[in-house]
Design a protein around this nucleic acid. Structure first.
Lengths: 255, 255
DNA sequence: AAATTAATGTCGCAC
DNA sequence: GTGCGACGTTAATTT
């Protein structure tokens, strides 16, 4: 099992293990070993899936791809969709066994207690491989980018807008940008990276309310929603609640 | 290439194709063919990933699993996490090619225009397989279950609560359950399958407001949030806005 | 661990 | 297609 390095191939390369149409027992061995080593595993075959935890689900027989990650994540993917049809979050522990001669994988976690069970009637393939990924994703166009854009050019909100704090906490949560306008009125700015609906207006309204109580002053407080655009309903709600809107993209030049 | 059925194996079984450490050109052929056939593809290897669309991202070299689904979904999974580090939604079209002798997979979609590019420096394995999954997931413990529970036993809300409509539309959206109490006051019920925070209170409040305008009557309107539990802040907001709370689990017997 | 919010959220449904 | 809300949302951050 353990390679002592006396073979011909380059021992530096990780050699993935692949098995086509393996018997259940062979699959069990491979997967159990890989899970112990912390390898990533994929299993493709006809399976049933049971889940019980925050909700409860059953999935009858069909062809799916099961992915087991070294961090304890389990994913069951069908032929369709971005989302796995069933899954288990990182930190779960997987048990691999045979149940009535069928490959059976159980995954558990606590807090909340959740349980996932995948039983394979047939196995088309199993792969296992060691994984290392040192890189972090570099992402732009987020709400954070929009915040930086406003802080660098407060005039994008309106002339003489002066940011005073980010993440200013109120009893209702943190205000994205807190500042003052040219008349020294308090301004609550809520940022959204994309077109907003009624929920964003409600959020801004909560912050303005909370700040009013927090300052317990008669000072007028303005609320400004900053986003690329707003739906009709969002605009009506803004008007009803005397809140304002400023159209702004997270990235400059995105029109 | 096309099997005319004169071989020895059972031609009824789909035979997945697996390749270990394939040259880029072999991988390109296999993947291109599989994408054309509508097979599911997995590629594992060291790759870089670029994305541009609603946002923009770059990911330097590392070992990842790429999954291409017959519906046009693309997923790039690292060794960690439930979420793919990069992806492309269903309906995207994939192009497979060689770029400077490296396997290069481009995926595009429109509406919004988005672009994903995965370039493999090395390939540990490629798998392709035909997929069929006739089954639908059967899920319980959802908000829908909670609604049914309330409609079957309206007394769980309060004695003599009478549901009159579900999904009753208002200018602000649909009310989960609209009904009347023992005093013929209008009641807006908002259901949540799990513990609620401030956002749920805001939602209920919007519906109550909208209904008040819609009925344009002086009739008092009650708003009741029904969920397993509520956070402190949510409870304070409920009190401020004169809304009510009823503790209820989506599934009976879940405490 | 609980609370709150962002997300390339995705997904489904109604219009 | 847009709008709106649910989701076993997940993930990150802070308390």
């Amino acid at each position: 099992m353990t390679d002592t390095g006396d073979d011909h191939g380059p021992t530096f390369e990780r050699t993935p293990e692949l098995a086509v149409d393996p018997p259940a027992e062979t699959a069990r061995e491979r997967i159990a070993g890989a899970v112990d080593r912390g390898d990533m595993v994929t299993v493709f075959g006809r399976c049933r899936v049971e889940y019980d935890g925050r909700a409860k689900s059953t999935l009858g027989p069909g062809d799916r791809l099961l992915v087991l990650k070294p961090d304890g994540t389990a994913l069951v993917h069908t032929d369709e969709g971005h989302q796995p049809v069933n899954w288990q979050p990182p930190g779960s522990t997987h048990e691999v066994g045979l149940d009535d001669a069928q490959l059976h994988i159980e995954s558990r976690r606590t807090g909340p207690e959740e349980y996932l069970e995948v039983t394979f009637e047939s196995i088309e393939y199993v792969t296992t491989v060691d994984v290392t990924d040192p890189e972090d994703l570099s992402l732009s166009g987020t709400e954070e980018d929009l915040r930086e854009r406003v802080l660098e050019s407060p005039g994008l909100i309106e002339p003489d807008f002066e940011p005073l704090a980010t993440e200013r906490s109120t009893p209702a949560g943190a205000i994205d940008i807190y500042g003052e306008d040219s008349e020294n009125r308090a301004v609550v700015v809520e940022l959204k990276r994309r077109r907003v609906g009624p929920d964003a207006v409600g959020q801004l309204d909560r912050y303005v309310d909370a700040l009013a109580r927090d300052l317990h002053a008669d000072r007028e407080i303005r609320g400004i929603l900053v986003a690329p655009s707003a739906t009709d309903r969002a605009q009506e709600l803004l008007a009803e609640k005397n809140l304002e809107f400023v159209a702004l993209e997270p990235m400059p030049g995105e029109e």
